[in-house]
């Protein structure tokens, strides 16, 4: 099923998915989402959040992601974080997305979405076998399966 864009008629929250959320995660309104389109959604979202285009912002997003997930840790190596972040930002400049610097995009944007960092690494073979994502940025917390 193709994903569509939905707008909360109460607070303007935008959701992109197969179906509208029953409860708005921002304002808590029930059954408030209505179908919208790209142009309207982008006008509502605007540029308020600003781009994730600096090392500080990208690393902060990784830290926040890891802290909110009880099963993962961000690598403790500042050198690795620094190098991987440079690669991710290089990809943003050259290829338009924050792709993993240890994976190679195919040029098929739909397929390559799976390579945007952080990717869905917990489903990957490497996570099961070595307890880390392919590039080693995220590691499994000890004691977690």
């Amino acid at each position: 099923m193709a994903k569509m864009m939905w707008r909360c008629s109460v607070c303007g929250d935008i959701h992109y998915g197969n179906k509208p959320p029953e409860i708005c995660p921002t304002c808590g309104a029930a059954d408030a989402f209505v179908l919208t389109d790209f142009d309207e959604a982008m006008k509502i979202i605007g540029r308020r959040t600003g781009p994730l285009d600096s090392k500080e912002k990208v690393v902060a997003s990784w830290k926040d992601f890891a802290e909110r997930n009880g099963a993962i840790l961000l690598t403790e190596s500042d050198e690795e974080i620094d190098m991987l972040c440079s690669g991710v930002l290089e990809n943003l400049r050259n290829k338009g997305f924050r792709y993993c610097p240890c994976r190679i995009p195919s040029g098929n944007q739909l397929k390559d979405q799976a390579l945007i960092c952080p990717c869905n690494f917990m489903k990957q073979k490497n996570w099961g076998e070595l307890g880390e994502c392919w590039c080693g940025l995220f590691r499994k917390k000890e004691g977690r399966s």
Partner: peptide, 22 residues
Amino acid sequence: NQKIMQEYGDVISDACGGELGV
């Protein structure tokens, strides 16, 4: 070089756990 890697994409992807990687 990326094109050369993609020529051997299927074999390398298999070895890399499903996607092209380095």
